[in-house]
């Protein structure tokens, strides 16, 4: 990408972590995107909020536990993590159940933010 053109990239995560590969794939793309110095934000809604649930232990299913990697995002200068309020509530979760600091927002706020993006990527 040419210098000086910072675009707004939003990654919308709507799938639970281990049942499908979407969550892990999204995380890997996000980490790669971080190298391009763009304005990156991550949204977690619907079952995607489960990606950030604390206390994941994957030994029993012989999958890699990639949840600690969300804590590395800060070091990659990815600091805009948004979680939709209704999705959390519908799953009996609160902000305190999540393993990273996030901004919880209403569906309207999220919709507005989505409108502002140059690129929206779905996972």
């Amino acid at each position: 990408m040419s210098e000086g053109t910072v675009k707004k990239f939003m990654f919308v995560n709507r799938k639970a972590p281990y049942g499908t590969v979407y969550a892990l794939e999204s995380l890997e793309v996000v980490l790669i995107t971080a190298a391009f110095d763009q304005d990156v934000s991550l949204v977690f809604m619907d079952d995607g909020v489960f990606q950030l649930k604390q206390g994941q232990q994957t030994k029993g299913i012989e999958n890699k536990n990639f949840s600690p990697t969300y804590r590395a995002l800060d070091g990659y200068d990815i600091e805009k993590l948004y979680v939709e309020e209704e999705s959390l509530a519908a799953r009996g979760l609160t902000e305190d159940d999540l393993l990273v600091d996030v901004t919880v927002m209403s569906r309207a706020e999220l919709g507005n933010l989505m409108e502002e993006q140059d690129v929206v990527l779905s996972f």
């Binding site: 979407y22 929206v120 779905s122």
Partner: peptide, 9 residues
């Protein structure tokens, strides 16, 4: 026609 789009997978 639209400025941006979102695919809801």
């Amino acid at each position: 026609q639209h400025k941006n789009c979102q695919s809801w997978l």
